[in-house]
Simulated scan of single mutants.
Amino acid sequence: MKPEEELHSFPYSETVDGVEHNYRITQNMDRYGVEKDGVVIAELSHDDGWKQLSGEKLSKERFESICNHIESHFD
């Protein structure tokens, strides 16, 4: 795999209702795989705006939190 084709990922943790969850976001071009506690829960994309492509529908709060983490990682 060429360096420009390598997948890039980063972790973050978040506490929800007193329970800490560990997330990992993996970027593949304009798509982002989202793992929660080691299980893939969604795939997101960003074109004109954020969209969830797969997985069980995320709550509005969770979706916004994940998108904000992705954006802040690249700032």
Rank of each mutant, 00 (worst) to 15 (best):
1 M>T: 08
1 M>A: 05
1 M>Y: 12
1 M>S: 15
1 M>K: 15
2 K>C: 05
2 K>S: 13
3 P>C: 10
3 P>V: 11
4 E>V: 05
4 E>L: 09
4 E>K: 12
4 E>P: 08
5 E>Q: 12
5 E>W: 11
6 E>L: 09
6 E>K: 15
6 E>S: 11
7 L>P: 05
8 H>R: 05
8 H>I: 10
8 H>M: 11
12 Y>G: 05
12 Y>D: 06
13 S>I: 03
14 E>R: 13
14 E>K: 11
15 T>I: 15
16 V>N: 05
16 V>H: 13
17 D>H: 08
17 D>I: 02
18 G>E: 09
18 G>M: 10
19 V>F: 15
19 V>T: 15
19 V>D: 12
20 E>G: 11
20 E>F: 10
21 H>W: 07
22 N>G: 06
23 Y>P: 10
24 R>N: 04
24 R>C: 04
25 I>H: 00
27 Q>L: 02
27 Q>R: 12
28 N>S: 10
28 N>L: 05
28 N>Q: 06
29 M>G: 09
29 M>L: 11
30 D>M: 06
31 R>G: 00
34 V>C: 05
35 E>V: 06
35 E>A: 09
35 E>Q: 12
35 E>K: 07
36 K>Y: 01
37 D>Q: 10
37 D>H: 03
39 V>F: 12
40 V>C: 12
41 I>G: 04
41 I>D: 04
42 A>Y: 11
42 A>D: 02
43 E>P: 05
43 E>T: 09
44 L>Y: 02
44 L>S: 01
45 S>V: 01
45 S>H: 13
46 H>A: 04
48 D>K: 07
48 D>A: 03
49 G>R: 15
50 W>R: 04
51 K>A: 07
51 K>T: 12
52 Q>H: 06
52 Q>Y: 07
52 Q>K: 09
54 S>Y: 10
55 G>W: 08
56 E>I: 03
56 E>Y: 06
58 L>G: 03
59 S>Y: 08
62 R>C: 00
62 R>T: 08
63 F>V: 01
63 F>Y: 06
64 E>Q: 00
65 S>D: 08
67 C>F: 03
67 C>N: 06
67 C>W: 04
69 H>R: 13
70 I>K: 00
70 I>N: 00
70 I>P: 02
71 E>G: 07
71 E>M: 15
72 S>A: 09
72 S>G: 07
73 H>V: 10
73 H>A: 13
75 D>A: 14
